[in-house]
């Protein structure tokens, strides 16, 4: 029967191809042993956006340190720790937010390096937690009719013990500029998981999460800086 013969031939051809590709894969594993070993170590970094704003902008004081540790060739556990003291001036309200934050998670390298190179184009996930206070420095009462004289109200009401938690997606690059010295840049997309405000006033800025939005849980951020890897071993 020509039909069944055709199917058998196809099956055999498939067997041959599959076998062939398996052979190729095996070959590449063999050649892998000649590959330059990957360095494992703790990479510590400093954010330069915050440093720049601290130096050149009176409204912000803060820093962020980052770290990651390679678990496998492509996966790193990673995290950031930081502090921010930011004064925001809006047309009707001026407030300061002050606090510390911690973000823990991991980065997965989407980029396949050439032999001997160690760069990352990565997607990362973080869980962030922040504890902070918010102070209202001054405000204007909003009225649609300003025929009565009005003034800017100076206050100093501080709401302490505020906290927030969020999930964060990071997309970024880490490029080895010099041996073990890296430059990094990432974009962060965040979503609040919990947001404990004072009850009287919304949390308008959360250290680590950044600006909040009235009707949303989404936040964003950007970070760039330099990092150094303390090499532990090669594999």
């Amino acid at each position: 029967m020509p039909m069944s013969k055709y199917i058998t031939n196809l099956f055999l051809a498939c067997m041959f191809v599959c076998n062939g590709s398996a052979q190729i894969a095996k070959d590449s594993i063999v050649s892998d042993s000649l590959k330059t070993p990957v360095k494992f170590g703790l990479r510590l970094g400093a954010d330069l956006t915050g440093l720049g704003r601290t130096l050149f902008n009176n409204d912000f004081k803060g820093f962020e340190l980052s770290g990651d540790y390679r678990l496998t060739e492509r996966f790193h556990v990673a995290g950031e720790i930081g502090s921010a003291d930011k004064t925001t001036d809006e047309p009707n309200i001026n407030f300061s937010s002050k606090g510390n934050y911690l973000k823990v998670g991991g980065d997965f390298n989407l980029y396949r390096n050439w032999d001997g190179m160690d760069n990352m184009i990565y997607a990362g996930l973080r869980y962030g937690i922040s504890r902070f206070s918010q102070t209202i420095n001054s405000y204007i009462v909003y009225t649609t009719n300003q025929t009565w004289p009005y003034s800017v109200n100076q206050t100093n009401s501080t709401y302490a013990g505020l906290s927030a938690m969020w999930l964060e997606l990071q997309f970024g690059i880490k490029v080895e500029l010099l041996p073990n010295m890296f430059g990094f840049l990432n974009l962060q997309l965040k979503r609040l998981v919990s947001n404990q405000s004072s009850g009287q006033i919304d949390n308008l800025y959360i250290p680590g999460f950044n600006r909040t939005y009235q009707d949303g849980q989404i936040g964003s951020g950007v970070s760039y800086g330099i990092s150094y890897r303390i090499p532990f071993y090669k594999k």
Partner: peptide, 13 residues
């Protein structure tokens, strides 16, 4: 008494 409204509106009395 001044009550918080929002970032854009500030407070209301």
């Amino acid at each position: 008494e001044d009550l918080f409204v929002s970032r854009a509106c500030g407070f209301k009395t």
